[in-house]
Design a binder for these strands. Structure first.
Lengths: 248, 248
DNA sequence: AAATCGCTATAACGTACATTAGTTTTGGAT
DNA sequence: ATCCAAAACTAATGTACGTTATAGCGATTT
């Protein structure tokens, strides 16, 4: 089942058996991708969208000198470029961080879903708006937090996202990111990322080792990054991540 | 015609006469809003969405101490919270900047459109993804530009957005924003915003006077802010804004 | 075993921006 | 015409982060 993890545990929009079957049938092929490969470039016209099954990928914008700003990290169960279905032309690049496996879904198949399955269409729409909500949380991170807060926020978010898809036990997870990747996510230099990670280690909040992230104090880390998981729309997040669900 | 400006000049998704009529009929009421009022709060459950007809509004996240980070500025023709239709619960606040007029559209009416008009549904979806594309451009702004670049980018973007809806002639537009607002958009302090605006003035790039923004050198300002309008998906932008359309 | 490469680490120094604390200007209300 | 609050503006000082440079370390290649 390729679509197992898609919208898993998301409030009120999990797919029912029939919807899942339809989406499964829409899969045209399964592809594997090496680590650190660009799969779609800004300006490309798309005729397929991709669902990430395994590994980690990212989306980014860059300036002319090749400085990159990551705008999203995608984890298994995420669509990589479903927004490319209504938009047709992408405004950014999509690339793999680790080796990855994806399911390719032609826009033709999505046209059929759009024409005949309004409920499922709205759930697909929902999933793209989840990305937008994450963009907003990232804007808060870059606009209002210091470097330590930014990294703390990112690691808290990633942990919270990996729990529903079974890739975090609530405090430990494997992440194929280097310190340079963290820099491009948090808008700081890799030198400073190194300083920040040391500080998080010394404050006994989190140990980052590229291959393994271990959060020593889930609540403390969330507090340091002002992380409030409400925007992830995950069911019963309080039970699973140790962070209380916050309201308005 | 309330929906005149909605998706005006957007590549390939302008509404046809019939679609426009449907959307008009979905309008339940017209409301006016005073300047500086919050209309929706994070955590609220929504049963209507709002189309901005006149004035400027914004969306923001704040931390506990009331520091705000704006995540969007909305101009006439924009839906304010259409993403609240699939999401139901908002992750951020919506507020007016100036006095404003809005058209209120019940989610019930959107349910009908969703169920019976797949093409129009996809155009509504498109419009929410345009917001997401702007979020990404804002992430680039905060993550990769210095203070002068951030302000230059924001003013260039706003100018480009106001042209299609007839609120900029390509270099001059009225904007109800204070320097403090610019600060909350660009993630800098108001003191520094003041310095940045002076610099833009002295470099003969742009004069900002709250009530009136005058861009003296459209291309120069865009270059300073690394502004590339492709993500706005506006037709023939090169003819109208003086900025050449950029490809991948 | 040597060489290469990517990643982590850390030190010294410079700077863009924040902070604090004002003064001046503007514009709407009475 | 005067008043008042909000906004614009400025200066002095501090600091978080950038920049540059170098070294160490483990994995992979030859």
């Amino acid at each position: 089942m390729f679509t197992d993890k898609f919208l898993r545990d998301r409030r009120g929009v999990e797919l029912d058996v029939h919807e899942r079957a339809i989406l499964e049938k829409a899969v045209f092929e399964i592809r594997t991708i090496d680590a650190r490969k660009t799969v779609v470039q800004a300006g490309d016209t798309l005729s397929v969208s991709m669902l990430l099954l395994e590994g980690f990928m990212c989306r980014y914008l860059d300036d002319r000198e090749g400085m990159r700003q990551l705008v999203a990290v995608q984890v298994p169960g995420d669509f990589l470029d479903l927004h490319g279905y209504p938009l047709k032309i992408l405004d950014h690049d999509v690339a793999s961080l680790t080796a990855a496996t994806i399911a390719v879904i032609p826009h033709k198949a999505l046209d059929d879903i759009n024409a005949t399955m309004p409920e499922l269409t709205r759930k697909l729409w929902f999933s793209t708006l989840l990305d937008a909500a994450m963009h907003r949380a990232w804007l808060f991170r870059l606009g209002r937090l210091d470097a330590v807060g930014r990294v703390a926020h990112f690691l808290s978010e990633t942990n919270a996202r990996l729990v529903p898809v079974g890739l975090s036990d609530g405090k430990r997870f494997a992440l194929g990111l280097t310190q340079a990747d963290i820099s491009e996510i948090c808008g700081i230099t890799s030198v400073h990322t190194n300083r920040v990670l040391r500080q998080l280690r010394e404050e006994r909040l989190c140990i980052f080792r590229s291959s393994l992230v271990e959060i020593l104090d889930v609540e403390g880390l969330a507090r340091r990054g002002q992380f409030n998981p409400a925007y992830l729309y995950i069911e019963t997040i309080s039970d699973r991540s140790g962070v209380e669900r916050l309201t308005s």
